[in-house]
Amino acid sequence: MVMEIVCPAGTPAALRAAVKAGAHTVYCGFNDETNARNFPGLNFDRAEMRAGVDFAHAHGSKVLVAINTFPRAGDEAIWHRAVSAAEASGADAVILADLGLLDYAARNHPGLRRHLSVQAAAANADVINFYADTFGVKRVVLPRVLSVPEIAAINCETKVETEVFVFGGLCVMAEGRCSLSSYATGLSPNMNGVCSPASHVEYNEQQGVLDARLGGYLIHRVEKGQPAPYPTLCKGCFSAGDKTGHLFEDPVSLNAEKLIPQLQKAGVTALKIEGRQRSKSYVAQVVRNFRTAVDALEAGQPMPEGMLARLSEGQAMTTGAYKKTWR
């Protein structure tokens, strides 16, 4: 069975580009705080979501709606309405993280397939089976902290489908529990859907040296000609004692393209591409690349060489936790 390519779409144009490029499935979110990519000018209103689902279905692709932030006390109705709107749009599933919202969806929208977001940070078979038994979760997006053998071990102990990230921004914190952004800006991906909100990001280039500040704090300085990273604290360059460096993680992108055969053997159902904040140009190229790879694998042909470095953060790539070689 061909591994499913699950592709990001931040706009209706990106959704169409993904579908045309061969995405089996596209994931997207509403234009509010209910999803973890709540950026200016991004995402779908209700009508756009319906039209996007119709377009995808007409071309044989599925649409998943990410409602994967954590409802704010007293404002749960915003998230409840998003689940209803996703079902009304004809979406194939919702991607949820919050226990209460999973319970709400299971009780009120039992016919709507539920996937567990990476934001839930479910990293072992016991917790995955708990979500399946309690809320009828059919698929889990695994956090980007597991090695391939660990993923294989999980798949041996659960019937829940597993989806893993294979390309894009790398987040190795305990996903759904990272508050780094909150310290500098008061906003976090978990509650507001924004990691390093653009409203708090400031760039300044002088004589080719680029400074990036988040909430007023200088988080990295890039010399002339050097590639620039995203302005996130986890990719910041800090001085501590007599050392200066990327204390949390280097500014690189995940690319597990070469590991697709191993991931298939480990029992993975779907391969996820990160980047709902990226353009349709990125979406089209990455999807085409990965679709070619999984089709080649299915046909028993050699994996094609990728051409994705130029699209990567810092223009550098890593296999991340799948092969643990970190310091």
Binding site: Q277, S279, Y282, S312, E313
Partner: peptide, 12 residues
């Protein structure tokens, strides 16, 4: 739509 804005940002 020929280029990706983030990629152009990464490459400066």
């Amino acid at each position: 739509g020929a280029f990706d804005g983030d990629a152009l940002f990464f490459s400066r």
